[in-house]
Design a protein around this nucleic acid. Structure first.
Lengths: 339, 339
DNA sequence: ACTGTTCTTGGGAGCGCTCCCAAAACGGGG
DNA sequence: CCCCGTTTTGGGAGCGCTCCCAAGAACAGT
């Protein structure tokens, strides 16, 4: 039986209010009373009861981080692992706790959403970007649970990387290296960030008078197998370079090119997106648009906590993308190997 | 202001006990009373208040999953991402929730441990295997919080893969393929599972009369850079094959061999450990001992919940390892390419 | 119709804390 | 010594639910 605040009060010869004041560092307690109470606390090993405190204060200081099935399936494990690291870091820094809701069964998601959202522990939620029309988002809006989306979502505060700018960076880099016939492999075309990356790619081509050709665009579904298949479909159109919207698809692209006897970057240059840990482990290591996943996680939690604590400021945050130049684009070799 | 159970009672013309009975599906409620209560619940949008319920029942149905800094640093992101998927699946299946404690600051770990362990929400914890003498484990034992370790730990219930058996599988496979001069690259030698995998490797060599040579053993620290450096140290000793205790190190091994102009598996065969998603994405895809990480996570939570619910059964679970044969060992080519 | 048993329902109290209001104590000035 | 203002401390009540015990209703048998 764990000691309670009342037992501390009895032992210290004060009231429960005084003990509560000591624990919560209320200024109006005399030094000797304070000392006596701490002594009693240590003597019986008292620890505050978070559930009782939450009931009394109507605060839990717990947030939810929700990763729907659509995310664990399409994106690599790496994405949400790093996202969680950032989210956890921000949570720890603000003295909150993080309930993780990781779903992998598309059939039970709505039932599990309800269990997570309607539990009373979670004061607000960060949701990894879901596909459009995800029932989770509708449920969140209905419940009016304060929510921040990772990835742009209509009607919700969000954090996102500059997908359009990243698409431009990748394409611009390839153009500056002298490539003209540049293909691209996308994720599912109905996802907003996929559309934005594609728009960045197209605009850069048009700005350089190269022109946009639909036959140089293939959809790869963010999987390795999808990347491989998409590259195989593109090869007959003889691209000089390819911008791939995800590192995992790029791994498939590498495999397809190897199977076709083509060397990267000698025969075809490659720039991808994400800068997941995989990117540097592949051979050649990928030139890639870094999606600051950890920072995305961190800022999403920061934004949520600011909303919960009634702080002002914007409810939309777009982080700049940056290009990480490695071997797969050929820039290093063309520049004499310097880096 | 959210509706309470008392408001439902008022609207339905019953007492709070009757409403509580309906919500909790207590049998002793007449059908028409039950219907009237549900109608009232739906009419005012009542949802049970988990915090109040937890205070009254002294149960939260929340468990902690703790990933210390030593794990996020040494092991790849992939390890705990997949572990979390398994843990989350088991948690969801049993109607519990999962507070994730992901630490990445070695200096603040003990402070954060205290915050997580001593919060009153968490009924028990799953802890990813920590290095020996991790202060977290000492804190857990002191608090007598029911704990299950992922990875063998003295004095704690645990789940683990059969590391010794896995070390044997990998080495036996290389021996059966005809290799005699087999090197090995380990993680930190003070970790129990590293010692066990090394013991499996050694015993198989000795059983085949090959003999164990310390000059064929290098420590790689479970990082890509460490794997690369370890392989570079081993090359002068002219191994025919290498057993690498982790896929991420194997990526580094591949890079080191490529830099030395050696082809896998033509010039040197490779078997690794983990079967992380990376394993199939590398070129050649890794033959690897599958560590069933997702199942480890799942079973760790199952074991914890069984302990919390007072079920009987063993407090130690060792899962068998299995070998996944891909390209890096040369078995496929030697067998005529069939698979 | 009465009695005994079973089923349904109500309400007091408690889970462990916080907070508000009031009482008590203390200190300073006249 | 008294009075007034400030500081320290105490305890009642409530946060929203569960649960236990008791009361009332319903049913069955004599």
């Amino acid at each position: 039986m764990k000691p309670t605040l009342e037992e501390v009060a009895r032992l210290a010869g004060v009231s429960r209010s005084t003990v509560s004041r000591v624990i919560n560092e209320h200024p109006s307690v005399s030094p000797e009373t304070r000392q006596r109470v701490w002594k009693a606390i240590q003597e019986i090993g008292y620890r505050p009861h978070s559930v009782a405190r939450s009931l009394a204060t109507k605060r839990t200081r717990i947030i939810g981080v929700i990763i729907p099935e659509a995310i664990t399936k399409i994106f690599s494990d790496q994405f949400f692992a790093i996202l969680l690291q950032g989210a956890a870091q921000a949570t720890n820094a603000r003295g909150y706790q993080l309930i993780l809701s990781l779903f992998d069964d598309p059939k039970r998601q709505e039932e599990l959403y309800a269990k997570v959202l309607k539990n009373g522990y979670v004061e607000g939620a960060v949701v990894a970007s879901a596909p459009p029309n995800d029932p989770l988002l509708r449920a969140l809006k209905e419940d009016r649970l304060p929510t921040v989306s990772v990835g742009k979502q209509q009607g919700l505060p969000y954090v996102d990387v500059d997908n359009y700018g990243g698409g431009r960076l990748a394409t611009e880099h390839l153009v500056q290296l002298g490539y003209r016939r540049i293909a691209t492999i996308t994720g599912p075309r109905d996802h907003v960030h996929v559309q934005e990356r594609l728009a960045g790619y197209r605009d850069v081509l048009v700005e350089h008078g190269i022109g946009f050709e639909e036959e140089l665009v293939a959809e790869g579904g963010f999987t390795e197998a999808g990347g491989m298949a998409a590259m195989q479909r593109l090869l007959p159109n003889r691209p000089e370079a390819v911008f791939v919207q995800g590192d995992t698809m790029a791994a498939g692209v590498l495999r397809a090119l190897r199977a076709a006897g083509l060397r990267v970057p000698d025969d075809i240059a490659l720039v991808s997106f994400d800068d997941a840990p995989l990117a540097s482990l592949l051979d050649p290591p990928l030139t890639t648009v870094r999606q600051p996943i950890r920072l995305l996680g961190f800022m999403a939690v920061e934004l949520l906590l600011n909303i919960l604590e009634g702080a002002g400021g914007s409810h939309e945050l777009v982080l700049p993308a940056e290009l990480v130049v490695r071997g797969s684009c050929g820039a290093i070799r063309q520049n004499g190997g310097g880096r």
